[in-house]
Simulated assay, not measured.
Amino acid sequence: MKTEKLYYKNPLQTSCEAVVIEKHPQGLIFDKTVAYPEGGGQVGDVGFLTRTSDNFQIPFFNTTKIKGRNIFLEDFPSIKVETLIIHHIDESFLEKIEEGDIFILEINKKNRSQNTLHHSALHLALMALEDIKPGIDQKIIGAKITDKYGRLDFAIDYKFSPELLKTLEDTCNKYIEENIPVEIYSHPKEPEALYWKCKNYSVPCGGTHCESTGNIGVVKIKRKSIGKYSERLIVEVPENNNFLNSYK
């Protein structure tokens, strides 16, 4: 038993009809979902669940994955595939719901669109940084992608200079202006082991992404010191109504 991940088939789909297949202490598990679960640093989707039989509506405040099958592939991070996905709700609602109930799942489009923009922008920033400091991707020790920012933490013994940040920002915005296509493709041995590719740069990533760099709009980049031997790179993307309106 697993949850069908509709966000891989159509990343712009924001609602679907689904059946409750399991009640979990933290929420509900459905046979399918459009809600992206927390993973790879990206926060989980939020939204509403509406029961079709009586229009009973419940907010879900996070989405996470459990169980699944571990995979170990050469040159790919160890991940779980074929997972179940929990839509987190207040536990007081659980007694009012039964397995087999049918719900309309709807994600918060604005939240998803900004998460997606920040995730894609963070890839552009790392792509630009790799050109200047090859191998720095091996120094990543943390990541977080939200609707407000995207960040990467590095274990390095120097600080990102203002000149470097300006170069990264200019390069990212140049890529955006060029409207370069982005490709998402699967590992030949595992359909859920996904890659993000732009130009000749490819990295393992199963997050949500724009179809082209031009969707992003504009990127601002800054840094933060988080220790003597660690540095944080932060990207920020203003709200983009054109991209938001592409969600269905």
Rank of each mutant, 00 (worst) to 15 (best):
E99H: 06
D75I: 01
S92N: 13
I71P: 00
L94Q: 03
D75P: 00
E98N: 11
F76K: 03
E98K: 10
K80N: 12
E74R: 09
T83A: 03
I79G: 02
G68F: 13
S92V: 12
F72T: 01
I86M: 08
F76H: 06
H88S: 09
V81N: 04
I86S: 04
I79E: 04
L94S: 05
E99Y: 09
F93I: 00
K80S: 06
E74Y: 13
H87F: 12
E95Q: 12
K96R: 12
E91W: 11
E82H: 07
V81L: 03
L84F: 10
H88F: 12
E82N: 10
L73R: 08
T83D: 08
H88P: 01
R69I: 09
H88V: 06
I86C: 07
K96H: 15
I89Y: 01
I89C: 01
K80I: 06
E98S: 09
D90L: 03
F72Q: 07
G68E: 06
D90G: 02
I71V: 07
I97G: 03
K96V: 04
D90T: 01
F93N: 08
H88K: 09
K96F: 15
E74H: 11
G100N: 03
S92T: 13
I71A: 02
E91A: 13
G100C: 05
E82W: 10
H87S: 06
P77S: 09
F76D: 06
S92E: 15
I86N: 07
D75Q: 15
G68Q: 05
F72W: 13
D75L: 04
L73F: 09
R69H: 13
R69L: 10
I85C: 04
H88Y: 14
E98W: 12
H87W: 10
E82D: 14
G100W: 14
T83M: 10
E91D: 14
N70W: 15
L73D: 08
T83C: 11
G100M: 05
I86D: 09
K80V: 03
P77C: 11
F76C: 01
F72D: 09
I85K: 02
P77V: 05
I79K: 06
E99S: 04
R69Q: 12
K80P: 01
H87G: 00
F76M: 02
V81F: 03
F93L: 01
T83E: 12
F72G: 00
R69D: 15
P77R: 02
T83F: 05
P77L: 07
L94T: 02
E95L: 04
E82Y: 11
R69E: 15
L73P: 00
I71E: 03
L84D: 11
I85W: 04
F76W: 11
E74M: 05
E99C: 03
E82R: 07
L84R: 14
E95K: 11
I79V: 07
L73Y: 13
S78N: 14
S78Y: 15
V81M: 01
S78A: 14
S78F: 15
E91S: 12
E74I: 02
